[in-house]
Amino acid sequence: MKPLIDCIDLKQHYPIRHGLLGRQSLAVKAVDGVNLQIQRGEVVGLVGESGSGKSTLGRTLMMMEKPTSGSVIYDGKDIAGLTHAGLHPYRRRMQMVFQDPFSSLNPRMTVEDSLTMPLRFHAPELSAAQRRDEAAETLERVGLSRSAFERFPHEFSGGQRQRIGIARALMVKPEFIVADEPVSALDVSVQAQVLNLFSSIRQTLGLTLLFVTHDLAVVGHIADRVAVMYLGQIMEIAPTRALFTAPAHPYTETLLSAAPQPKAGPRRARIAMRGEPPSPLNPPSGCVFRTRCAHALPECAQERPALRPAPAGRGASHFTACLRDDLSLTPAVTETPSPRIRTPV
């Protein structure tokens, strides 16, 4: 099947000016040669730690910034080279949900203005009343009532604001949404409400979703497929269940073992990471993770490993950027399901 989004060797480098004459000598390679396909209707989780480039990748896919090189094929057409005007029709098809519900809404605009604004530019044929009706419908879809219309963002809680942010993204009826850490600023119980909202709109609207987050458990809940990023590159990409039950890259294993789980009883063994994080200005040669990897070999420094099918019968859609296929890595979960807490009715 033809993917909705296909990014090919995508790079986003930020030059750092150095010296008196401001000659470029170094660059932060925030995204460095990413290949990623997203199918229509799929939810892809993009996980990584700070500095991994996950947010930059999301923003570059949205063409918020022009990539340094590489292409983003959106529904068969490369949009990486398009101008502001050329991108306009695509703006209607892809939208973004932001992390901070306090900064993503204009504090001086009412909810109604924030919501109807996108339609001014994408559906100018609609009358003001029609725009308002659309906004009311969308507001209801995210669990708010029309009475929110005349209010300003500061009158709402964080969770409600995030719902408004989602509603604004939905106003132009996009097919693709990039959600950049949309629940990490929220309280635990509110986080669950917003995650459920994402699941439900994804289902009812058939959205394609790139869910950028640092939280593996959140990704495990919402994503069909997970891509793990480290220092601007994708280390592993796999169907969600496979990533948790049979990780193929040592970095994934480390991440999974580090994430604390709300379970009493014996603690899981932790896979320690060696040394200190490398400077993004001067990443290691070869595999960027090798300086922290417990399984690194001399040949890991030679050449940057490309994503390749994961070894040992892990399935056709499981890819890893690790040279070694002789590793037996610790999974985060084994296949036996565990008890859940039930709230009796």
Binding site: L105, N106, M117, F121, H122
Partner: peptide, 20 residues
């Protein structure tokens, strides 16, 4: 973010400057 959101929606520069 709200300014970026307006840009992502395709709002023209004058709108972002004067309204946002």
């Amino acid at each position: 973010d709200f300014t970026i959101a307006a840009r992502m929606i395709g709002a023209p520069h004058w709108w972002i400057m004067f309204r946002e």
